[in-house]
Design a protein around this nucleic acid. Structure first.
Lengths: 244, 244
DNA sequence: CGCGATAGGTGCGACAGCGAACAGACGCGG
DNA sequence: CCGCGTCTGTTCGCTGTCGCACCTATCGCG
């Protein structure tokens, strides 16, 4: 994790053409995100969209009885607050910081103006980029649903670790088993056991809230197809080098 | 189910202002949909979007081993083929006709032209409507994920029946338990048992592929919160009477 | 009107994940 | 460097769903 900060560490912002980026850059506000911060709450209108750089934000649904489940996660490949440009203003879920770090944010008004802006050409790059990202997010949610239905906790843990790693470009996560259990919507003991299996197999190592991945291919071999499907779709929809 | 056909039986089309509807109407093609028809296949570019009127289409993810799970369902409140306007062209899922009926379709090009059309501002009604619908669909997927994680088969069956009924404006479904099991991603026997419970309680009645709902409030009482969350979100995002 | 295919019903062993309760162990703050 | 709070490990009985095997009932078709 670099010490300096640049909005272009976020892949969506990085993919904007120079003119659009130039219009937005002065409006981007760097915000530190602490573990557990809530960026928005179910049903409450949000005022900003957040472009994470070195943080991860989870979209979490919290049920009436307090149980929870992660619906999707957002890191430097995406943006938190799609309902602002999709037109709904709110969602029935909560956005919680899962890995501390930073994000750049825009006010809702600035985002909407740029989203709806009609340049000389018909489609603004931001407009297209955000819609494509939304489709990728959709795939992530769909796959979460499928995975919840069909795959074992062990597989799901692997998927979750891999998705997190991809979004941090790191091989260590600061994350207790309790937190992971909340995200996956399972018991903490279940995570202990699944993580124990991985540890015994030499795939990961952890000590009190620090998980280090030793053998990434090992993780990939143990996870279900869901991880690959999501990754492939993100890569397809959001090429590394866009209209730069 | 009426004998005549009118594109405005689809709520999205019905919500379009007169001028936009007038542009599209001549391009709408009425298509009969038979049970099991596949509107599009995972990863294959689609050429039309479908606006169901008296049919239901399921978005299904089929796994490598053949197991499947429904991700969302689309009826007269929506449209099949959002990836056309979202920009991805394909999705990793399959769209299958779950209840036979009809849909109007547009070619991908006509849809995109209207979607991107800029009348002074970008905000064509179709553009906004489709994005709001997409957000509603997103909620449906998210809730499917949550429901798969936390709720019992009995509850899920109730949710599924209610969602289907809402999309048909009927109280009878033509649907075998085997099919339902495929949608929910569970065993057929599980559905038999859950349906048996409902039948014994006098909530539904069925005979060989025909399910009749006798006591809708009873269903609502037995389902989990997921149904209400999805319904509320659809009602909020897609008001009955729009900019007509 | 009767046959065959298809839909629905049942029983049983296996097992993953749950809920609760508790024991160790690490590491931060004082 | 000590102690306590937090995080992790383990146990046990329980329940819901699975996977399989097999049977029965119904409907539609010839």
């Amino acid at each position: 994790m670099p010490d300096y900060h640049d909005p272009r560490q976020n892949r969506l912002l990085a993919a904007l053409p120079a003119d659009e980026y130039a219009r937005l850059a002065p409006q981007l506000e760097l915000i530190p995100l602490a573990l557990g911060d809530v960026l928005y709450e179910s049903g409450i209108p949000m005022h900003h969209v957040y472009f994470p750089t070195d943080s991860i934000v989870s979209l979490l649904y919290v049920m009436e009885d307090g149980a929870s489940a992660e619906i999707a996660m957002v890191g430097n490949e995406g943006v938190v607050g799609i309902s602002l440009f999709m037109g709904g203003e709110t969602t029935p879920s909560r956005a919680v910081v899962q890995c501390a770090g930073h994000a750049y944010r825009l006010t809702s008004q600035v985002l909407k103006d740029e989203f709806d802006r009609v340049g000389g050409r018909r489609s603004g790059a931001l407009h297209n980029l955000l819609l494509r990202y939304t489709q990728a997010l959709l795939t992530q949610m769909a796959q979460t649903a499928v995975c919840n239905r069909h795959h074992s906790l062990d597989q799901q843990l692997c998927r979750w670790l891999l998705l997190s790693l991809d979004r941090l470009s790191a091989n260590e996560l600061v994350m207790t088993q309790e937190l992971i259990a909340n995200m996956l919507g399972v018991r903490r003991e279940g995570v202990t056991e699944a993580a124990g299996n991985l540890q015994r197999a030499g795939v990961i190592e952890y000590r009190r809230g620090h998980i280090t991945v030793l053998d990434r291919p090992g993780l990939e071999a143990r996870t279900c197809e869901c991880y690959a499907v999501v990754k492939r779709e993100f890569d397809r929809l959001l090429p590394e080098e866009n209209a730069l």
